[in-house]
Amino acid sequence: MVTLEHYLVLSAILFGIGAIGVLVRRNAIIIFMSIELMLNAVNLSLVAFSRQLNSMDGQVFVFFIMTVAAAEAAIGLAIMVSLFRNKETLNVDEINLMKW
């Protein structure tokens, strides 16, 4: 029997993997993929909660998150393309013109 807890634990693990990915990976595109993983972990919990609570709000929320994530991907990749044109790298350790 798969219960709510299973979904929540899986979602928390995915979110954790995503968050760690953002902090340790050095390629901007992989960092961005990790962020998408975090968003999808959120979607998983939302759908699980929605089912458990018998309310539609959660599923509606998921649609909004997916839409925004698509717009975010478009803008993020556009920014990376324009950076790559000028600098030819997406390694965040080398993107260090400005530093304290």
């Binding site: 901007a28 960092i31 975090m38 950076l83 993107i95």
Partner: peptide
């Protein structure tokens, strides 16, 4: 390139923080 770099940093950290807010909301 400085403007590109600023946008990339702002974008990655902003998207990351949106993820945190979302998980809190969920």
């Amino acid at each position: 390139v400085r403007s590109n770099e600023a946008a990339l940093k702002y974008f990655l950290l902003g998207a990351f923080s949106s993820g945190l807010i979302l998980y809190g909301m969920v």
